[in-house]
Design a protein around this nucleic acid. Structure first.
Lengths: 335, 335
DNA sequence: TGTATGTTTGAGAGCGCTCTCAGAGGAGGA
DNA sequence: TCCTCCTCTGAGAGCGCTCTCAAACATACA
């Protein structure tokens, strides 16, 4: 059983260098190549990654960092979708992946990642306004792709959506419906996407000369937060609510119902994400679809390309979103 | 900036071997050790893992394999809990982790894992009766710890619960309540845990001389499966249902309600897992608590110990479960 | 003083691979 | 025929670390 390149070389009667060329695609004459391939075939040879890594300086492994509470990573479908997409692309390219969740402080996580010293590149979620982990990763020099980005990251490689435009589009939709008091439940306070969606919402309402005072309530992307925030918006006599996430909208829907109001007749309701359950709510939820899994895939592809051709400079991608109109804002729709 | 052991050696005026001893805990005189530690302090030295791996044959990275649909891995709290626990233990020991989900066929996954050739050990979920992935991993010789186990795995290292005893205990509870027609909704057909829980249920009912004919319906651990199965059990006039998972029970609860029956008055309902939502159902669900996160932690710890002392032989752990009685079986309970 | 025993250290041989460099051999032009 | 140019191949030098082995020195005992 051949175990090393030297074994293979001996078996095929060529040098180690030539076997290496065959495996890694160097210039080899057809006959020699075939000879080696034959031996390779009959020999369950597996290159030793550590040796390859040591010699080449590459490991074929990328790090994925989602520094949110571990429990959340898996229960919130947003992160689940992201990870699924990333896994997908990486598997396709036979790249390995190491995962870091929020089990430790950001400092510890950063330290651990850097001391691995073995990662070709890193994918990291960057939706927090002030994030030492992202800063540390970026300044470490390890090639990275961010999912989401702050202003400070505008010269980094990232995959994101245009949250401002999306927020504005949803608000415009509600405005177009003739609603006059349109409330907004934001996402987490320290979240970039939340802030941008709010900015978009504000811009739309200002342009339409509609009030926003007292109509913006802070949420946290969860259903519970949505319920609470919606309760105070109802007191403020809104006739529409734009929630920064579908989860939030699900909570808000409960609150509206419990207040004895009808959706959309009394209050039109819109979410963000278009998670699977959005279309199954009663009534089905108008929302901004983002292809979460696609974002994950793109991030991984992006990183792999970056590793392949570092000279290409930072790679920035904005993925499209799509307004999905359902009965929670437009009652008369069929389906 | 010192980058290699040789640099450090030069800086501290000793040999590379001595620096290595200080770092890895060999015998070094106090003065020499201090000298080296001082240099280490002022020098942001990070050992090169590839080199270390190559020289020592160890990588400090373990593989985690959960070959279920990726989407499921994250939406089902069972797997989420498992992963959280594993991450926890591994992080504690500063061990790296690589994750494989069900993005590819089992054969491809197996191949990819083995060709990594860099994993010190593997943690793999083994709840499927006939699983080439688990078989392949076990026969590969890479130290592994299974989560769950088949009969064929009785000589492997694993962490599991006693599903038979647990199933029997739940059934006994329902019997003790005086229920006469106790139905059972199983888990996935090819699942070991499902089969064992059913065996336990059967044993209890046989001992109590109660019928099981027509009262065992196949489910799949999901709420949808539970709804469907419960519907036919209701037609079979059961007065109690033991579901193989909480998710299943949630679906069954809907079905029972939709049939206009009351829980527990008409039909007592029990689940399995004690997921977070079990206590929030109306009525709160009687269920068998298993410490899912604890199982994950134990699996990781188990593997690390195994790697440390391979001579110890396989390490088998059965974690306890606990019957949690709530109003879905005993109506009069407070809370 | 000589011998046995123990402690601390350095030299150096790998681990298995990649990659450079130069040599061997063949083709083509003068 | 000789020289140049190109293609293919092998030798060998690392990559940074671990670990064995033996040397050097210290200590203890007879």
């Amino acid at each position: 059983m051949a175990r090393t390149l030297d074994d293979l070389a001996e078996l095929s009667g060529v040098s180690r260098a030539t076997v290496s060329r065959v495996i890694n695609g160097g210039a080899v004459s057809p006959e020699t190549r075939q000879k080696v391939l034959d031996v390779l075939e009959t020999t369950s040879y597996r290159p030793n990654l550590a040796a390859r890594n040591l010699a080449s300086g590459k490991s074929g492994v990328v790090g994925v960092v989602m520094h949110v509470a571990a429990q959340l990573t898996f229960s919130d479908n947003y992160f689940a979708g992201l990870l699924t997409g990333i896994c997908d692309s990486l598997t396709e390219s036979a790249a390995g992946m190491m995962l870091w969740l929020g089990n430790r402080t950001k400092e510890e996580t950063l330290d651990q990642i850097l001391s691995m010293g073995m990662l070709d590149g890193i994918i990291v979620t960057a939706d927090t306004i002030d994030d030492p982990l992202v800063d540390g990763l970026r300044s470490s020099g390890v090639p990275s792709v961010l999912i989401g980005h702050r202003r400070a990251d505008s010269d980094a490689s990232y995959v994101d959506i245009d949250n401002e435009a999306a927020g504005e589009a949803i608000a415009d939709h509600l405005i177009g419906l003739g609603r006059q008091r349109i409330g907004h439940i934001t996402g987490r306070r320290d979240s970039v996407s939340s802030r941008d969606r709010k900015t978009g919402y504000r811009r739309a309402l200002r342009r339409a000369n509609l009030p926003t005072e007292g109509l913006i309530i802070e949420g946290d992307y969860t259903a519970e937060g949505g319920y609470k925030a919606a309760t105070s918006l109802i007191e403020a006599k809104v006739d529409a609510i734009f929630c920064a996430s579908d989860n939030t909208a699900a909570g808000a829907l409960d609150a509206i119902r419990n207040a004895g109001l009808r959706v959309p007749d009394d209050v039109a309701l819109a979410g963000f994400d278009d998670l699977a359950f959005a279309s199954e709510l009663a009534p089905p939820l108008t929302t901004m679809r983002q292809d979460i899994q696609g974002i994950g895939q793109e991030a991984a592809r992006n990183l792999l390309t970056l590793l392949d051709r570092p000279e290409g400079g930072p790679r920035r991608v904005l993925l499209p979103t799509e307004l999905v109109i359902r009965q929670s804002t437009v009652g008369g729709l069929s389906g």
